[in-house]
Simulated scan of single mutants.
Amino acid sequence: MTRSVVLLVPGQGAQHPGMAVDLYHTHDGFRAAVDEVFALWGGEGARIRADWLGPDPEIELDDLRRSQPLLFAIGYALATALRGEGIEPVALAGHSVGEVVAAVVAGVFRLHDAAEVLAERVAQLADGPPGGMLAVAASVAEVIPYLDAEVHVGAVNAARQIMLAGPSAPLANTARRLRAAEITVRPVRTRNPFHSPVLQPYADKALPTLRRLPLAPPKLPVYSGYTGKLLTAAEATDPAFWAAQPARPVYFADALAAAAESGRHLFVETGPGQGLTALARRHPAVTAAGSRAVALLPARAGGDAAQFTSTVAEIFAAATPTSEAVLP
């Protein structure tokens, strides 16, 4: 049984201490690609790298000033390392900031342009209200009665796996009400209300930069978490589409379904952790298509190089030439 490769690129919440550090120290191609991204951020890139690799970070990992740049750099570097191994994806799907990585790999953004947009986004959102996100084991319909003011559905990752987002106090109140109703809730690793309308005024500040950048139609299919469908040329080249993303909900379950319907694939999580791998393995459309999902990195720090090497071998054993894939 052969399969084409679709990359799944995770976003906020996937970060964890020590993520990909082992691979950075052992894989030349990965290290070079990460350093390429850090170099685009100048002195701040050097500080991000020092915090990531060092034992005593100046800024904690869950702060968006560290989590967002590192998720972008690691996701991009893993995709680059895969290509260096001779593995070319036939499509991509990204979650949150992972969609920006997917857009770079697909040729929508030039790398240095995406890095500029991300640096500005981090600075702009850092001025936003403090808040967070909750992972909830329930459907959208089940949680609606418990939502406090200013708390919104920020992501639908599966039929009964959603994320809520909002400012700190209303989100805490919603969490208490859900737990009182015996609904499983856990905090997501973020200090910001990503994918909540409260961030819209801050997200809009990215528009001037995005309007002067050359955005191109994707050269590879990208299944957008913001539409749950194949990214169109009009969307990919619309500055407003990219500017609004921090304030818009993510429909990753729909994006996975759309990707699964395009053929039998090997979904490869291209970032820290294995959260998207777990989502893909449980998604009925993925299993119905006879597709599988694997992760390039372990769920926790340590053993990165062994996991990467093992997964690359598995990809070669399972992957089919691009010409055999059934894609748009």
Rank of each mutant, 00 (worst) to 15 (best):
D22L: 02
R66Y: 09
Y226P: 00
G29T: 13
A115N: 02
D254V: 04
A278R: 13
A280D: 04
S196K: 00
G11M: 09
H265G: 00
D62N: 11
M133S: 09
V136K: 12
A247V: 10
A233C: 10
S96F: 12
A149S: 15
E269Q: 12
Q15N: 03
P298G: 15
G273R: 01
L92V: 04
F72L: 07
E150F: 05
A259C: 04
G45I: 03
G98A: 04
L279I: 11
T80V: 12
V326I: 13
G228Y: 10
A50G: 02
V294Y: 12
L147Y: 10
A299D: 13
V90P: 00
G166W: 04
A295I: 09
N173F: 00
H112I: 02
A114H: 03
R248K: 08
G228R: 07
K229G: 05
V21H: 12
H112Y: 04
V294G: 02
F109P: 06
A301C: 07
S323G: 11
L134Y: 15
Q307I: 13
R83W: 08
A317S: 10
P214N: 06
G43Q: 08
P201K: 07
D56A: 15
A240G: 02
L230W: 15
S196E: 03
V21E: 11
N157C: 05
L164T: 05
Y76D: 06
P328N: 05
N157V: 01
A137M: 13
G29H: 12
Y251I: 01
D113C: 07
A236G: 12
D148H: 11
P328E: 01
S224C: 10
G228K: 11
D56Q: 13
A260W: 15
D127Y: 00
N173I: 03
V108C: 03
Q15R: 03
L92H: 04
R292Y: 11
P89G: 02
G43K: 05
G132E: 14
E269M: 01
I315Q: 09
